[in-house]
Computed example of a mutant assay.
Amino acid sequence: MKQLVLSIPLFIKKPKVTRRQKFLEEMEQVVPWVDWTNRIAPHYPVAGLGRKPFALEAMLRIHMMQQWFGYSDPAMEEALHDVPMLREFAGLDAGEDVMPDETTILKFRHLLERHHLAQSLFAETTGRLAQQGLLLRQGTIVDATLIAAAPSTKNRQRKRDGEMSSTKKGNNYYFGLKAHIGVDADSGLVHSLEITTAKVADGNMIDALVHGEEAIVLGDRAYTRNDRNLEAQRQPEEPVWGMPFKRKRGEELPAEHVVLNRMLASLRAKVEHPFRIVKRQFGYTKVRYRGLFKNAQQLYLLFALANLYHVRKVWMPTTG
């Protein structure tokens, strides 16, 4: 009998499941593709006398991969030709299908921006999470993060983005925008989002981040005011303002205030999880476009996807 050698297919090693492949398999199950395509479909072009448009779900999947992996429009076109895993996720076959070019990918993004669809998808996602009992709305944690913009003037206009601004944090100055979020105190899911220029104070945005049904609102020192702390007088319908106590100049905080501040800090920790997903998992640390509107639309979509990623372990068995 002929001796088997390692070149025979019987001994071909099964390829390793990479982190990117595992991530795509998880997001395949948790993203509500049918609901999202139905939301976009009334605005998507239909086949006519010209070139037949690409399938809506394929373009949506390509746009999602841009958010997850940070591809620009030209880089996304190249990746569809180079990476079989991404083509498979988009439902495209290199042997049979024509790949969308960078202009087609750009036009799809402009379609979402023109009709404010990213904001609509964010609202639909939070509503669906509430229906599933994953967003309880009994408490809200508020916080903001800075997203850097290019400070250079070496561009066509010879100036910085006029809708961005500088702010000081600690001893450092930052140029860009702020993403203000309201997070469910129980689950850590984002239920409200506001985008402003960087110089807007965090405390000025708190009314836009609460939904009015909370029993308690938590925030860091940037949100503390005389009428917003644990000792402040409040109306019966008002929530408890769980803001930390501030030390007066030349005085030390009482011991009980120090203990309360530490307790509040541990409760506020959940608000950092969505920022970690957007900045570390999705790699979004710098704005991609000029102006607040385009970047705000991208952030609405990123935080909707961050919510889905946050609950993927819970949701996958029920949506598989």
Results as ranks from 00 to 15, higher is better:
9 P>S: 04
10 L>I: 13
10 L>D: 10
15 P>C: 08
15 P>F: 07
16 K>D: 13
16 K>E: 15
24 L>P: 00
27 M>C: 03
30 V>K: 10
34 V>G: 00
36 W>V: 01
39 R>H: 10
39 R>I: 15
44 Y>N: 07
46 V>G: 01
48 G>T: 13
48 G>M: 08
65 M>R: 04
65 M>E: 12
68 W>E: 12
70 G>H: 06
80 L>E: 03
89 F>Q: 01
93 D>W: 01
94 A>W: 03
94 A>S: 10
96 E>H: 07
107 K>N: 14
108 F>S: 02
109 R>L: 00
115 H>C: 06
116 H>D: 15
121 L>W: 02
123 A>Y: 06
124 E>P: 07
124 E>N: 01
126 T>L: 00
127 G>S: 11
128 R>P: 02
131 Q>M: 09
131 Q>I: 02
131 Q>C: 09
131 Q>W: 01
133 G>D: 03
134 L>C: 00
134 L>K: 05
137 R>W: 12
138 Q>S: 12
139 G>F: 02
141 I>A: 12
147 I>V: 15
149 A>N: 00
152 S>K: 10
155 N>C: 11
156 R>I: 11
159 K>D: 07
159 K>E: 13
161 D>E: 09
163 E>Y: 04
168 K>H: 03
174 Y>H: 14
175 F>I: 09
177 L>F: 13
178 K>D: 03
182 G>C: 03
183 V>I: 12
183 V>M: 08
184 D>P: 06
189 L>E: 04
190 V>C: 03
193 L>V: 09
199 K>D: 15
199 K>P: 00
201 A>P: 00
202 D>M: 11
205 M>P: 08
205 M>Q: 15
205 M>A: 00
206 I>E: 05
208 A>E: 12
209 L>G: 02
211 H>W: 07
216 I>G: 01
221 R>F: 08
222 A>L: 00
222 A>N: 06
223 Y>P: 03
224 T>W: 02
225 R>D: 11
226 N>F: 01
229 N>W: 01
236 P>Q: 08
240 V>Y: 04
246 K>W: 03
247 R>G: 02
249 R>W: 08
253 L>M: 08
254 P>S: 00
255 A>C: 01
256 E>G: 02
262 R>Q: 15
262 R>V: 08
263 M>Q: 14
265 A>K: 05
266 S>A: 15
267 L>H: 14
267 L>S: 12
267 L>W: 13
271 V>Y: 10
274 P>S: 05
278 V>D: 05
283 G>W: 09
286 K>S: 13
287 V>S: 10
289 Y>Q: 10
290 R>T: 14
300 Y>M: 09
301 L>R: 04
301 L>I: 06
302 L>R: 14
305 L>W: 01
306 A>F: 06
310 H>V: 04
312 R>Y: 05
312 R>V: 11
313 K>Y: 12
317 P>T: 13
317 P>S: 11
318 T>Y: 13
